[in-house]
Amino acid sequence: MRGDFHLKERYKKTCNLILDGWRFSLVLDYKDMGPRSLLVDSLDDVADNLLIDSKNLKVPVIYDPNIPQASSIPRRWDALFREWYMLLDDELEVLLFTLDNDGYDALVGLGPGSTPAGDDFLTGMHIALRWMGHNFENVISFRNLESRTTWFSSCMLYDAACGLTWYRSKKLLEALSRGADGEVEDALNELMSTGHTSGRAWISGFFHAVSVCNSFS
């Protein structure tokens, strides 16, 4: 990997870089891995116009962001999936209200922050649809997406539509497929720890998509 990365955002454990409009990330914690991210020891030297030479990387690849295909989803989680709308209470009720009145497309960019909760919901939804092998092309319009929401969010939605996801969500997919005790709970807790409402909105969107698909199958 080589090129002129511009430093876009710097957080405590993550730096987001931009190249040709795409997000790339350097992360300290493997749990923050996602599409186009690298695990690094330190973010201290990260500066604008960064050059990364893959030859100098100790661990070139440790995370595969491809969404696996669900063979079958154990029915034991149905009751959990059906709770999707209950997750949209308090400050997230605006999502339900908007969904009700204006449909999925209106969720794009809805809510404060760098990943508006509406985008988190839609991302969770697209990942679920991908995972279950369903068609999703008409759920939202991807035209001019970057003008309708934040840069980070639009990348996240494109990634989901392309079948790529983040470490924490992949853990949930695997746990749900395996149906092992405690694993699903752990995975959901991990997701909840991403931002104040992000995790909750993501889970809600994911559950929503699965329960809608389940009700047709």
Partner: peptide, 27 residues
């Protein structure tokens, strides 16, 4: 396991919104 419980009045409020959503076939 902990249940984040809410009175059913609040749930049914959400449910009625959901029902409308299904009937309207939001897309």
């Amino acid at each position: 396991v902990h249940v984040d419980w809410r009175p059913s009045a609040l749930k049914s409020d959400l449910l009625s919104k959901l029902r409308k959503l299904r009937e309207g076939g939001a897309n």
